[in-house]
Amino acid sequence: MGRYIIRRLIQAIPVLLGSTLLIFATVFVLPGDPIAALAGEKRADPTIVAILREQYHLNDPFFVQYWNYISGVFQGNFGRTFANVEVSEIMAGKFQVTLNLAMTALILEAIIGVGLGLWAALRRGKATDSAILASTLVLISIPTLVTGFVLQLILGVQLKQSFGIDFFPVAGISEGWRSYLVPGFVLAGTSIAYLTRLTRTSLVETLRADFVRTAVAKGMSRRRVVGRHALRNALIPMVTYLGADLGTLMGGAVITESIFNIPGIGQELFRSVYERQQPVVVGIVTILVLVYILANLIVDLLYAVLDPRIRYE
């Protein structure tokens, strides 16, 4: 197992290199001069621009720049912005905010998605089942932007004005964990729908398996047959989906954070692309890639825990 983890981490290196190179190149070819942008509307003094360009190695060939950057990353140094702030410093606090958001989304996804999926599976073919399936379709087809603004309006404005209920903050993060509830739900929206469907299918299939029939023949109660024998097997694809989704949720935070004005890395990424803060953009993407890789590794390890037929050497 330990050797497997090490091998997987080594395999992750080319993935990390490839994806950062790609993003580095993309940022490199973006039009506009970051140093000029630094000066804002005014025209910058050409001598200062030349000094700054030298200082930030902007005149070096592309691969040299990339090499300087990536070797820094491997030493935990994400470089400095053009305004001379440590990139890692910018990311540190914001990463935590986005992680909070993504974890909230993940927890909501797990509770709602699994709950609805199980409910639908146990009422297969009945009205409840159809209603749940239909609502997942609706959830999948509505863009995040729409759910975001609609919920903001209903929960943040109407609920407060009509009923005086102010439980769901819909902007900023000043209310602690409660601030993350609505944005988390919006972020998780489509994932909830997919997980619901996956859970339902998975349990329905498992309930048809021979070993479920064996459990019934052993005289086990329906509760035990479903809750122990079937669910334990149905769990495997569900957990896999949930784990892999953590990366997706962190990446998807860009839109949600802008809607709800949440100061996470999504918002920061958006601004940095706009301001051509090359080091920040690459830094954030690198972190996101890392999260993806780690999440997938954890999923694979969980897989082996849940399914004894899988062994990693």
Binding site: A209, D210, F211, R213, T214, A215, V216, A217, K218, G219, M220, H229, R232, N233, L306, D307, P308, R309
Partner: peptide, 19 residues
């Protein structure tokens, strides 16, 4: 079921719970 009348199935691999 299981206590007084029990049953064995054809394909034991699929009839036993894999996990």
């Amino acid at each position: 079921r299981g206590r007084r009348i029990a049953m064995i199935f054809q394909d034991a691999l699929s009839a036993l719970n894999p996990v």
